[in-house]
Design a protein around this nucleic acid. Sequence first.
DNA 1: TGTGAAACTAACTGGGG
DNA 2: CCCCAGTTAGTTTCACA
Lengths: 151, 151
Amino acid sequence: MDRVDKRILAELQKNSRASLQEIGQAVGLSATPCWSRIRKMEESGVITGYSVRLSPQALGLGDTVLIQVTLDSHSDNTLEKFGEVLATIPEVIEAHLVSGDYDYLLRVVVKDTRDYERFLRERLYTIKGIRHSRSSFVLRTLKAADLPLSM
Amino acid sequence: MDRVDKRILAELQKNSRASLQEIGQAVGLSATPCWSRIRKMEESGVITGYSVRLSPQALGLGDTVLIQVTLDSHSDNTLEKFGEVLATIPEVIEAHLVSGDYDYLLRVVVKDTRDYERFLRERLYTIKGIRHSRSSFVLRTLKAADLPLSM
DNA sequence: TGTGAAACTAACTGGGG
DNA sequence: CCCCAGTTAGTTTCACA
């Protein structure tokens, strides 16, 4: 992992379908070494896959909500069970077990506020063991989630 | 956007470098219609780009921290300024303006807890206008961030 | 809208600096 | 390590059902 590898990753973050020639051009190398560097990073686990960026809005998912969840109990069993239930809920696209004031942070996508009300009623409030939850609607997103490669 | 389009998107979310033949196989179509459906979704804005999934750990970014930030003032100007400063901090990989108890939720990646202490001292606490911040370390991530296509 | 073949472009392999 | 040239595989276009 040198400076050139990081620049290649930055190019792939911008557009993973760019040709090896385009990437090579951007980092000042021919296609062949770019290809072998990328392969090495795939093998070493730096690159874990290739994905597509989708517009939630265009898919009819206009609202993102961040939910802080506090559980009744912090036993291994309760945490495990809660995680398993979350895995089955499509609206929950992220779930993090965290330290601090609450236990879980969820990221949920829904059509609109009406749909969110349905989500709470049908999905979240039917889960046993939730002591407390607190919702925050995302009003604006200022930064997306690419990893920093300059540090 | 029909059922087949969604299945194509699901395949691309799993692996955006799969060949059109592989995608076609998965959705029961030949390569050509897959290609034209993908092109249409690119043009209509459903697909906004192609990216690479990287391992934060493999890049030496072992800790993720979620920070709730409350600002002193909620004037347009303050919010704007704060957003501009955040944009320049590489450790901040996500920033959401939210409704509710606090104003911003940040997602920050750092090497370790020592590095987080540095981040707080050098980056976050030097920003004017922060009334209060509350950090939660991510202990475990149970679900990643692909959009649901089954709903 | 779909299929299948033809033309084109990019990914991959190996030889040489 | 890198470049270049040749081979293989994938993408894009087109004629037709």
